[in-house]
Amino acid sequence: MTVLDERILIEQLKKGDESAFRTIVEKWQDMTYNTALGIVQNAEDAEDITQEVFVQVYQSINTFKGESKFSTWLYRITIAKALDHERRKKRKKRFAIVRKLFDNTEEVIVPDFEHPGVTLDKKESSVVLFKAISQLPENQRIAFTLHKVDGLSYQEVSDVMNLSVSSVESLMHRAKNNLKKTLENYYRSSQ
């Protein structure tokens, strides 16, 4: 799809064309889902976020002025929704901890996250890596996920995150160092 086709589709959607919306969803649903999945590390939550993203696209397409690429706009909405979802989940978790003090119900164990796109021989290592990624500070986590899981270049990551390329490079460097430390500690303790 060329940039011109993209613009035509967006204009059609602004006029309320349902078929244009369908084409947009079909084109970008995998990208949106993959980004959400990389951040929240849960298939159900990622699907829920993907739906929320397209609901917002449908409702607020008129606010898209075309100053950035449509995919950049989508990435931003997805990241905002995913982070919001995480915050809500953390609040619930905190509340559950307090409730557990007064209640004897057993704690729900969250299973390890396996990304469906990872090759079979790397699955085990990727589970450990995703666990380490989830412990990174927010900005480092987003930069690392966009680059490594979504395959964006540093330039694209900088566009999405509204940062300079050098800031993204710095974030990636720090993320890799932090991941190394976490992984070393994990493998040392499991020996």
């Binding site: 990208m31 796109g117 490594k148 493998y187």
Partner: peptide, 29 residues
Amino acid sequence: NIQKKVEEALNSLDGIQRAQPGPYFFTRL
């Protein structure tokens, strides 16, 4: 040995494929 495992883990996302939502996503949406 640990360094090898760490490197393996860090490289485990190389060649990752894009994940897809379940079928009939548009219908649910």
